[in-house]
C-alpha cells in the first residue's frame, strides 16, 4: 500500500508540473491501456465493462476519465460516453438499444475508446460477441441429485440454438468468493448434467447458491447464471444466549455459590452491627 502512495505521489507531482507547463508539454505523454469485456450476469443484464489503466511502472486504474462506447458495423455509431469509476471501470448497459447493430450470424461488434488528455495518450479496443442464455436447473433421479445447465445462443434472427462444447464452470457462492467445484463442457444438446456434491454445507436451512459461469469466452464473453437450492448440509444455529465462564452471564451454580457465601459472611457483619447497637443501649447494671 505504501508503495502505491509513493506512486500516487510521484504521478501527482508529474501531473502538477505538467499542468504548469501545458505549452511545453507534448512528447512525454503516458501510455494508457483499455480493455473491454462483455458480461451477462444472472439477472440477464448485459453490460460492456471497459477497464482503463495507465502505465506507471505497472498499470494502475485510471478513474474519472471518459470512455466512449461505439457500435461497429460498416460505420461506428456512438452509443454513450461514460466516466470510469474508482476501479477504472466504465460500465455500459446494453439493454434493447436500437443503435446496436447485429449481423446475420447474431454477432454484435463494439469499440471502446479513450481520447487521452494533455498528459495521457489515448487508447481503444474492439470486441465482438454473440448473445447466449445459460440456465441452471436442479433435478433428482432416484436418490441422486443433479445440477443441469443448458446453454443456447441467440442467432441473427433471434432464434435460439444449443451451444456445443462450451466450457462451463460451477461454483458455490461463499461469503467472500466463489468456490469452484466442477468444470464441464456442454454436450451436443448444449447441456451439462453433473452430480450435486452432497457434502457441501449450506446455510441454517441448507440453502445454497450454485453459480454456473462461462468465463471470457471468445464468442460469448462472460455469461453467468444462478440457482438456489436447499440441498446443502444445514449449519446448526448457534444459541446466542448462554451461561458460561466465557459468556456475559455467569453459570447459575456460580451465581448461587457466590450469593450463598457472601450473604453468609455479610449476615454475620450485620449481626455484629446489631449487637454493637445493643451494647450501646445496654442498661447500667451496677
Amino acid at each position: 500500500m505504501k508503495s502505491l502512495y509513493k506512486h500516487i505521489l510521484i504521478i501527482g507531482l508529474v501531473v502538477i508540473i505538467a499542468a504548469g507547463n501545458v505549452f511545453a508539454q507534448k512528447n512525454k505523454k503516458k501510455t494508457t491501456r483499455i480493455s473491454v469485456e462483455y458480461v451477462k450476469d444472472h439477472n440477464k443484464t448485459e453490460t460492456l465493462v471497459a477497464k482503463l489503466r495507465v502505465k506507471e511502472k505497472r498499470y494502475i486504474s485510471l478513474n474519472d476519465a471518459i470512455v466512449k462506447f461505439y457500435s461497429v458495423s460498416d460505420t461506428s455509431v456512438l452509443l454513450d460516453k461514460i466516466r470510469t469509476n474508482k476501479d477504472g471501470e466504465a460500465i455500459f448497459v446494453i439493454g434493447d438499444n436500437p443503435k446496436i447493430f447485429k449481423d446475420s450470424l447474431g454477432f454484435m461488434a463494439f469499440e471502446v475508446e479513450y481520447d487521452g488528455s494533455t498528459s495521457l495518450k489515448g487508447s481503444n479496443k474492439k470486441i465482438a460477441v454473440k448473445q447466449s442464455n445459460l440456465e441452471v436447473s436442479f433435478f433428482q433421479k432416484d436418490t441422486i441429485k443433479f445440477i443441469e445447465v443448458e446453454a443456447n445462443e441467440i442467432g441473427g434472427n433471434n432464434q435460439t440454438s444449443p451451444v456445443k462444447g462450451l466450457k462451463v464452470l460451477f461454483y458455490v457462492k461463499g461469503t467472500f468468493s466463489l468456490f469452484n467445484f466442477a468444470k464441464e463442457k456442454t454436450d451436443n444438446k448444449g447441456k451439462i448434467k453433473i452430480e450435486f456434491p452432497v457434502t457441501m454445507p449450506g446455510d441454517t436451512n441448507g440453502e445454497l447458491t450454485i453459480v454456473a459461469k462461462v468465463e471470457e469466452d471468445d464468442i460469448y464473453g462472460t455469461v453467468e447464471s444462478m440457482g438456489e437450492i436447499n440441498w446443502g448440509i444445514p449449519v446448526p444455529l448457534v444459541k446466542e444466549k448462554q451461561r458460561g465462564l466465557g459468556d456475559t452471564d455467569a453459570p447459575l451454580w456460580m451465581v448461587y455459590t457466590l450469593i450463598t457465601l457472601l450473604s453468609a459472611v455479610w449476615f454475620h457483619y450485620l449481626y455484629v452491627i446489631f449487637m454493637i447497637i445493643k451494647i450501646k443501649l445496654a442498661k447500667r447494671s451496677f
Binding site: L4, I8, L9, I11, L13, S61, L62, N63, D64
Partner: peptide, 9 residues
C-alpha cells in the same frame, strides 16, 4: 487512489 492525477498531493 481513485484519482490518479494525484488529488491527495
Amino acid at each position: 487512489i481513485g484519482t490518479i492525477g494525484g488529488v491527495g498531493l
